[in-house]
Amino acid sequence: MATVAFARHLYEFFPALKGAEVRIDALTVAELVRKLDVKYPGIAFYIADERGGLRQHVNIFIEEELVRDRRTLSDHLTPDSKVYVMQALSGG
């Protein structure tokens, strides 16, 4: 199961994330986001828009690599993947 870490800012809206070890069984990032939403209702709409695309100012890393498919989140995961849901900074 992939392990997921989150930007701390998300704890404000989803307090249950704080200190939680989040492990999700998913083959793709899109599936992971869908399953996260079951566990933490509403979180998918913080990470992605209603068309399933990654929000412009959110980044998802698999290990240290940014996901390539921001539009449909089709990047593959392995059972050992470490996934990071982060704020995308653009300076300032």
């Binding site: 930007a7 509403g42 709409f45 913080y46 828009d49 209603e50 929000r55 959110v58």
Partner: peptide, 24 residues
């Protein structure tokens, strides 16, 4: 939200706020 997109929020008393099911 700068990162997490537009959201609708509601409150019964003006103090404690919650996300209702969002507009999509």
């Amino acid at each position: 939200h700068g990162h997490w997109g537009p959201k609708l929020s509601r409150s019964k008393d003006g103090k404690k706020w919650e996300d209702p099911p969002q507009i999509k």
